[in-house]
């Protein structure tokens, strides 16, 4: 039974991701400085800030997808997910990435059928039975609010879908892994307003079951979706707190300047 924390702000919030004094660099070029932040479970946390402020880098640290980039490395600090330091050498990266799903800015379904896209990771996990896969696919597509649109053409190419549908398919693909945390790197940047709206509605549904961290350029989107907002600037976490507070009474003058549109 899932307890819905979002409807009960008074309840103590558990921490899903626990970041302490995180410093990160690409080769010798530092990208993050002393970031310390707690991301609560089953809430939507938004990272905002101007381009190049390090918000995507921070997000990509949570599933260590930054490891793909040659020269990218952690210089100090720690990230704990469910109490476990994920930068330890004995971490099973594949297991970590199964628990921490990710959706990218540019929707990137594989050149396979819709069905094959969704069951990609369950198949990797060793599930072979057709019935089990079918059920997983349906659940994931329903959770991503895509089932009704594609149920008649599950076995046609995913690339024939519209952009918004493709992005929701990517969300379904990530959900099919049954992760705890969903990372979203500007998921609506490549979409039109209608598709964006659908994704945002979907986020409200999803946060009942998943901890969601979203990077966005769109401050309106942050106010619409996020429970918590963190403002980053030049690799530093400037301010974080409940969205309403950040956008109405920010403590830091830089935050105020950014949300009022003076720069960025």
């Amino acid at each position: 039974m899932v307890t819905d924390l979002s409807d009960n702000p008074a309840a103590p919030m558990a921490t899903a991701i626990h970041i302490r004094d995180l410093c990160f660099a690409y080769h010798t070029k530092p990208a993050l400085h002393d970031v310390t932040l707690d991301i609560p479970t089953r809430q939507i946390t938004a990272f905002i800030g101007p381009s190049g402020c390090g918000k995507s880098t921070l997000l990509r640290c949570f599933n260590r997808i930054n490891d793909r980039i040659p020269g990218a490395h952690l210089t100090a600090g720690s990230i704990h997910i469910h109490g476990i330091e994920i930068n330890r050498p004995d971490i099973d990266l594949q297991e970590l990435r199964r628990r921490v799903g990710m959706v990218f800015q540019k929707y990137n379904p594989f050149k396979k059928s819709i069905y094959e896209n969704v069951v990609f990771s369950p198949r990797l996990g060793g599930i072979r039975k057709r019935a089990a896969l079918d059920e997983l696919a349906e659940t994931a597509l329903r959770s991503a609010a895509l089932w009704d649109e594609v149920k008649d053409r599950l076995h046609t190419s995913a690339l024939a879908l519209s952009g918004g549908q493709q992005q929701r398919l990517c969300i379904a693909r990530a959900i099919a892994n049954q992760p705890d945390i969903l990372l979203m790197d500007e998921p609506c940047a490549a979409l039109d307003p209608t598709a964006t709206l659908k994704i945002e509605e979907l986020l409200h549904q999803l946060k009942k079951h998943y901890t969601i961290v979203i990077v966005t350029h769109n401050m309106a989107q942050a106010t619409r979706c996020a429970d918590l907002t963190a403002f980053m600037y030049l690799g530093k976490l400037i301010e974080s707190g409940p969205t309403l507070q950040i956008f109405t009474t920010p403590n830091n003058p830089q935050t105020l300047a950014y949300i009022s549109g003076s720069f960025g």
Binding site: L93, S121, N177
Partner: peptide, 10 residues
């Protein structure tokens, strides 16, 4: 493609 696959734990 490779990034998506990596992120899915492949």
């Amino acid at each position: 493609y490779a990034e998506a696959s990596d992120a899915l734990g492949a």
